[in-house]
Design a binder for these strands. Structure first.
Lengths: 198, 198
DNA sequence: CGTAGCATGTAACAGGTTACATGATTCT
DNA sequence: AGAATCATGTAACCTGTTACATGCTACG
């Protein structure tokens, strides 16, 4: 298994232990990364993903809850069941989990992937014709404009509240979104020009 | 099954037939789209994906060959086995396939997805520290610079050879890549500034 | 008092990829 | 002759998502 192999070349402190955490599953590190900042319930993890990571990552309950179980089994995460109230389960990261997270962070990035159905449809646009393609561009533009507003709000918040330790890291990822979305909007204009005139 | 349902609201000409083509599998339409332009072998389809679509899509032999079989069974694609030579199998689109492709092209886009491991690592950068993060940005920058060179070559070729029917559609997708990659490079500078000064 | 949101979980499926096996042909 | 590329295919795996089931709690 590649699990062991990966552990060998980094995790000295724990390299003899068995881990059922599949090292390649990014959802592991998404969870560890979020818990590294603060203790959270599974539900809250989902919300963090949908809010803070939405621009470049996604994740569903169907992967979050089972992964939390595995992480607990491996001692990377601890659970604390609330006795009072609704009995929600609050997860927090352990030292072992932090080591695993750090190991992953140090490794080179394996894959950055963009899968835009919109571009696929545009590429095959000859069969659809100009009008249809313009509609796709329109829809794309509207979606991006909405998202861009959100991102610009995030930037404003981050530039006001600079007390956070991780402030700069959040800021650069949000700025990435802002820059690329602005480029998308410029491209929408350009694409329309190419299709209409020229 | 959602197959039938989807067929109902569009493919009048064939709506009574059974299709094993899973309507949601994008690989179906990637193949149909490519074959709509020219007859190809499975191997050549893979090459087209890796060259022309690489910026916004990917696909492996493990999905291409089985999908071709299904498309043939459903009459969306015809195969012709070369008797002489290596005996390669050349696939071409049928009228039915073209209808299916057009149907899909007309539907609104379901999902445009960006999954950048780089951004995930940057977001959790507090645990790694500035130096490590700068390395990730550096790697990202180098990869993008290489890709951008390729894309700019494509643009030049497309702007010279304007005879192609689908020329404009290819051009706008390539320009999308160029615009966003240039935005990425500007962001790399910005991100470094935020991390170093400020 | 009903409904929106909080909260946890699972089974079935989807939509691929990876790694391997096999062999022909072209290039040097 | 050997390597690179052309060419086809498959079985096992991976990494999720979707859809459902369940129930609590805060709010108007």
């Amino acid at each position: 298994m590649s699990l062991r192999h990966h552990l060998m070349d980094g995790m000295q402190a724990y390299c003899m232990e068995e881990l059922s955490v599949a090292i390649e599953k990014k959802i592991n590190f998404v969870i560890l990364g979020l818990l590294n900042h603060e203790a959270l319930t599974g539900y809250e993890i989902k919300k963090r993903i949908d809010n803070s990571l939405r621009f470049f990552w996604s994740g569903s309950f169907g992967s979050i809850y089972p992964t939390l179980d595995v992480l607990v089994q491996d001692g990377c995460v601890e659970k604390e069941e609330e006795t009072s109230g609704r009995g929600k389960i609050i997860y927090s990261i352990t030292e072992k989990g932090r080591v695993l997270l750090r190991e992953w962070l140090m490794k080179p990035v394996k894959k950055d992937e963009l899968r835009y159905e919109t571009l696929l449809k545009l590429f095959f646009g000859g069969e659809l014709g100009r009008e249809g393609i313009l509609v796709h561009i329109q829809n794309f533009e509207e979606k991006i404009k909405k998202e861009l507003l959100l991102l610009e709000m995030y930037v404003q918040n981050l530039e006001r509240v600079q007390n956070e330790e991780d402030h700069k890291y959040y800021l650069i990822t949000v700025k990435f979104g802002v820059e690329t979305y602005r480029a998308y909007l410029r491209w929408c204009e350009e694409a329309r020009n190419i299709l209409l005139h020229d």
